[in-house]
Design a protein around this nucleic acid. Structure first.
Lengths: 226, 226
DNA sequence: GTAAGCACATGATATTTATCATAATTTGAT
DNA sequence: ATCAAATTATGATAAATATCATGTGCTTAC
């Protein structure tokens, strides 16, 4: 945990690029950089929410306790802000954030963040754009979750890893089977079964957490048609 | 369709309450008030999105075409803004808005709206708060949709009508059975069946679209436990 | 007044998926 | 290396729900 100089930061957010040097100093003076290991909780549902978190590096899951089980709302990959909705929209965290790999994150006091929003309208507008895009993503994800069958959801998420996160046909799953189940909203067993199926049909190859996409076309069709 | 004087408007949004008279005049000069009848489309998915809409009165559904069928993302009740995420977050509407009853709405050009965001930080912050709260709502709704069984979702939505929309144990459903199915993400037939069940068990009484909640306690339990 | 069309209800069947049970495999600790 | 614990796989069964089929009542048009 260390204080930082935000003006020197090489991985500024789109919003922070609009801040001038004095503003970056305001940010830097109240900003604390922290590292997390895989599995560490960055913030926790039902705790008081008093910081905006800027994720500098790493991959994080947002989880919410549902009526039946815990669910992964979405994954967030650096660079991005974490906890804007829950810190600004409520006094208490409506969900948790957990590191899926080693992560570095900057904690920004909500009052400092508010101050920056009020003195720099370009910064503020970038935040608004980000929130809007997030909500659109969320709508799309929700519709797919509800309408597609599990086979389609699983296929869609495998493509998401390949295309958005790792940008490669081959990658190591950052999630256990059980977490994958929380992500596609089903049971561990069903995830196991369907992964086995995909492998048997030579659509993917799988060995432990290592996935290789063998037939992207079919995987895409499965993802779209349910 | 008529031009309006926003400074005289009695149903200002929380955000617009922060605008001073000159700012309200900017708004008023580019703001057009329009009426819609039940069933009218206010804006349409895949069309260019160039206006923020302030819903002055009435009830609206937001619908998105999913991979299998059309789905109701959520209902929006006046007073509120419509289409912030889709107008600011993308060039094209990601969803449609359809009036469920007679509606009046003000169309605000996106450039004027952006201008107001940049010159008045209190206005801007209220918009941010609204977006954040929306996203939290959306997370909760999505988790319930995915984890609860249909009986629970239906019960939850009936309570939503009673508590949030009509603030009464007795009301007329603003949706057909088919639309209700789009809202709780199931088939028409299943909605019919479950409504009949609820009525047979004397938890609600139903006659056409008229609903009366007879046993709120049980309905709540069903809503929570799936 | 009758026919046509539409929304809604309901029974029968098929499919998807959860759950339960058990086995296999991997991982970690000693 | 060996054993215990955790994770993953897989088969059998049951439950929820979609789909298909049919029927009923209500509205609208002519």
């Amino acid at each position: 945990m260390k204080s930082v100089s935000c003006s020197d930061c090489l991985i500024k957010s789109e919003a922070a690029k609009n801040l001038d040097t004095p503003e970056l100093n305001i940010l830097g003076n109240s900003c604390v950089e922290t590292s997390f290991n895989k599995g560490d909780t960055i913030f926790k549902q039902d705790a008081l929410s008093s910081n905006i978190i800027y994720l500098q590096s790493g991959l994080v899951k947002l989880t919410m306790e549902g009526p039946q089980r815990s669910q992964i709302l979405r994954l967030k990959q650096a660079p991005c802000y974490l906890g804007l909705p829950t810190t600004i929209g409520d006094k208490i965290n409506n969900y948790s954030a957990v590191a899926l790999e080693p992560v570095t994150a900057c904690f920004i006091d909500i009052n400092i963040f508010r101050n920056l929003l009020s003195i720099n309208s370009d910064f503020s507008y970038e935040i608004i754009i980000g929130l809007c895009k997030n909500e659109l993503d969320q709508f799309h994800r929700c519709v797919k979750l509800v309408q597609n069958q599990i086979y389609g959801r699983l296929a869609g998420n495998l493509l998401y890893f390949a295309d958005e996160i790792y940008k490669s046909e081959e990658f190591n799953l950052p999630l256990s089977r059980s977490e994958l189940a929380d992500l596609v909203c089903t049971s561990r067993e069903t995830v196991s079964r369907l992964i086995s199926n995909l492998a048997q049909e030579n659509i993917i190859s799988i060995s432990g957490k290592h996935v290789k996409i063998l037939n992207r076309e079919i995987l895409k069709k499965i993802s779209q048609n349910g």
